[in-house]
Nucleic acid binder design. Sequence first.
DNA 1: CTGAAAGCGCTTACAG
DNA 2: CTGAAAGCGCTTACAG
Lengths: 359, 359
Amino acid sequence: MGARRPTLESLATELGVSRQTVWNVLNRPSVVAEPTRERVAAAVDAAGYVPSRAGRQLRTQRSHAIGIRLMPTFDGINGHILDTFVHELAEHAHRSDYRLALFAAANEADEIATYARMRAANEIDGVVLTSTTIDDERIAWLLENDVPFVSFGRPWRRDVDASTAPHDWVDVDGAAGTEAVTRRLLADGHSRIGYLSWPAQPDVGGDRLAGWQRAMRDASDERDLSTLIAECSNDVTDARRAARQLLDRGVTAVVCASDTLALGARAALGARSADARRVPIVGFDDTPVARALGISSVAQPIVRAARTSVSLLVSRLAEERPPEHVLLSPSPVFRDSEIATPSLFESVGTIQEKEITNP
Amino acid sequence: MGARRPTLESLATELGVSRQTVWNVLNRPSVVAEPTRERVAAAVDAAGYVPSRAGRQLRTQRSHAIGIRLMPTFDGINGHILDTFVHELAEHAHRSDYRLALFAAANEADEIATYARMRAANEIDGVVLTSTTIDDERIAWLLENDVPFVSFGRPWRRDVDASTAPHDWVDVDGAAGTEAVTRRLLADGHSRIGYLSWPAQPDVGGDRLAGWQRAMRDASDERDLSTLIAECSNDVTDARRAARQLLDRGVTAVVCASDTLALGARAALGARSADARRVPIVGFDDTPVARALGISSVAQPIVRAARTSVSLLVSRLAEERPPEHVLLSPSPVFRDSEIATPSLFESVGTIQEKEITNP
DNA sequence: CTGAAAGCGCTTACAG
DNA sequence: CTGAAAGCGCTTACAG
């Protein structure tokens, strides 16, 4: 390696042409005479010249970087899907010559503050938002400050439909997923199919719940489905408690809002009779845990979601256009595995952890 | 928000001072007279001025960015630990005013090519390497090309000790972890403690194996430990097969190179008698899966590893100094949970997946 | 088709 | 203590 990085200037001097000509060879080759073009191109290759990002950025006022917050690893089971999303995002962004500027934030206010700083420093051209919540403050802020962005997750609002949102979003049709698995269970002869839900709200949880409701309403005249629903937080122990309620009410299958909840439901089966243990459980996200334990689930098309997010954001950075909304379909994955038995899960929630000091 | 970003120039003009004075207020305030300083500082705040990253970068030839490859999510169980590492890295890098430039790569050659391009474009100042392998080509390349870096993971060499490495590294003392859990099992009265290993090599797998060996050699005169070791790939199904061999040889406890293997070992217990099912299994990494299933494990101090990696790299970028090597101690986590029973795992490895098409 | 020039916004060496 | 100037490496508008 030489003493210094090559620049347009140094290459031009070396070749006895102007800076502009070197630039033309790289960016508008058709405009340069053949012999010059070949001579310059060869020198560029030999020198391993790559345009300085800073120089370009200063001139064009574009950083070619996309801001993305790495969400806290709150769960590790369902959280895995976001890690996969970020991985795919990095891959596809690179192909479009964009970089991912990764950061961590303690909460939404901190996240917004980071966007503000990064924008002020001209450090990012746009943002990919994940894990949208009801009346998401981040969306409001980004819109208000004209920051180009795409959200992976619909802009959940209590009274406004996501289809009217003034910004791009990509999401997975959770309702279609839970509806498909519920219909499948109905077709298999189940009629009392329980649903293990996060607290009902008009967000991703409400969406998944709605799919189960659609299938159930379709299948029976029974209007009151409420006894078949149990609520819990996204926690294995709490899910086990809620699943027990459902089993007590005689459900013969359980559809869950997440794989974490499905794991809790498995645990609840443990204490039951052999018959009860055959109750099929379906999770959501098709995480490594579901795969390893043979739990049925609903797989999100995460690679397509990432690819679509990048392409929407990149096109928005290139040109004005109306907002686009993309709803992708998930794929149910049924696994025929035997059902959990008591002892494995018996102690979940009362696990005693002891740390022993290292020698 | 005004029409344009404020700059040193625009602020200076507005305030009737020179660009230099504004800069001094921000970077060497002691040199500016009190009244000027206050007036300027107030204007800077009001305008929300943040120095342009590109301008600074062009002038200083420093990007203040750290390159990091997001590893493929090959496993999702033990892979989780790297996601956590990257998350913490982002957090600590930000505190030192560094950005994480994230990228994906298909393999090591691709990873190296990406470093080369990013360096040529002056896009990154340094690199954090993860998942080091034997005679790691990436390390050789980075050293040869004078790219500042720190590796999370020792530079494994067949014939050279990591302590002589000419570069910074941070690692977790895997051997100390497996040794501690093995000693604990010995203290609990176990003598035939099996070890479920990745193929033995002088790398992270060999390191973890060595800890178990130390404890076992110490505890008995029996020189030949080979019948207590079974090898397998990092895969639940293969681990189950290997664990069965160990059980057939009468082991009363199993220490594993990873939580993924521990999950396989759990599965192997399933088909055994009630007695056999009490065989304690210990994994490695204390992943969400281990926590959810109540499997004992060894927790890596991942937050400290990330913080140390950032501080080593940042200090290296600031000044010449001899290489530093940091070996952190992991913490065994014992969980008293009952042991796996047959049916849950019976079908692992022969799981039938069926996708049903969405409506 | 080729070249000379301006300017993006910083930091730094230097003059007053 | 304050200010005028140079230059990092690009891209782009313009002159020949």
